[in-house]
């Protein structure tokens, strides 16, 4: 895979020549981050930097701890080694300005769409007038206008995740953490949601760390694709995605898109096979 050499930098995330932004501008920064459960090391020595208007996709084989890393960055889980910084401040608990979109949607079944979307704002102590103004705006943005009074059980998975996305966007976060947000919806809906998320992001670019197990999704969304690999896992490759913005459906048809997809795939396939094999052995 020598053709990929120019675009693959081996764990070069903290290399100063690698990025035009200085470290102080990075919104998310992890330094030697590691997570252990007892003797079991999930990941170690993760050095990662995500700039202010940058989207980083995090991929890796199942069980490599990418979701765990995301939870650590959100402050839901403590890390065991190293540190995680958001805007230069150490993360010890969930922070204002950071919002997460969950694979399981995480909607409260007893709340309507409106109240679910308003949740983050309410907890942040937003004024009633503020909520009344912002919530409909974000419901609109994700295409749920007219569904304000509907309960989650009355909606499809795709609509539920639109609601989850609106809830995260409503707090106008500086950092958006996406935990395989579209993994639980059907393929067509996934594609629609990906493209809509891209257009929302173009309107309001923000820092986004996007965990996914879909290589295409990673290449489509990310400015860089970070590959976590190994047991315990660590940052194995960082692949620059030099696809033009705005990313749209057209992006999927570019030859460069197919090339990048192949590059990411090649870094992952052996590991994926090995992970599967180890799972078999473990049985």
């Amino acid at each position: 895979m020598s053709s990929g050499a120019a675009t693959i930098r081996r764990a070069a995330v903290t290399d100063p020549t690698h990025r035009t932004e200085s470290a102080s501008q990075s919104r998310i920064r992890t330094v030697g981050a590691g997570k252990r459960y007892g003797d079991f090391q999930v990941f170690r020595d993760v050095d990662l930097e995500v700039g202010a208007r940058e989207v980083v996709a995090l991929v890796g084989p199942s069980g490599c701890g990418k979701t765990t890393l995301l939870r650590c960055i959100d402050g839901l889980l403590p890390i065991s080694d190293g540190e995680i910084l958001i805007e230069g401040a150490r993360v010890t608990e969930p922070r204002a300005g950071v919002a997460m979109v969950f694979q399981h949607f995480g909607l409260f079944p007893w709340k309507t769409v409106f109240d679910n979307v308003a949740y983050g704002l309410r907890l942040a102590g937003a004024a009633k007038a503020d909520i009344a103004e912002k919530v409909p705006h974000f419901i609109n943005m994700v295409g749920l206008k007219g569904f304000e009074k509907v309960y989650p059980y009355q909606m499809s998975g795709g609509m539920q995740q639109r609601c989850g996305l609106a809830r995260a966007l409503a707090v106008e976060p500086k950092v958006l953490l996406m935990d395989e947000p579209f993994a639980a919806v059907d393929a067509q809906t996934r594609e629609i949601l990906q493209l809509e998320l891209l257009s929302i992001w173009e309107m309001r670019p923000t820092t986004m760390l996007f965990v996914t197990h879909s290589i295409e999704e990673a290449v489509l969304m990310g400015d860089r694709v970070v590959v976590l690999k190994g047991r315990p896992s660590t940052v194995h490759e960082v692949i620059e995605v030099d696809l033009p913005h705005p990313r749209t459906r057209e992006t999927l048809t570019l030859p460069r898109f197919a090339e990048l997809r192949e590059i990411v795939w090649n870094t992952l396939k052996d590991e994926a096979r090995q992970a599967e094999f180890e799972l078999e052995k473990g049985r």
């Binding site: 402050g75 839901l76 608990e93 969930p94 969950f102 995480g106 907890l123």
Partner: peptide
Amino acid sequence: PEHLEVARSYRAGWRE
């Protein structure tokens, strides 16, 4: 646990 996780992520206090 998903509900609790979401609440914690939005910085819910014990009352919430």
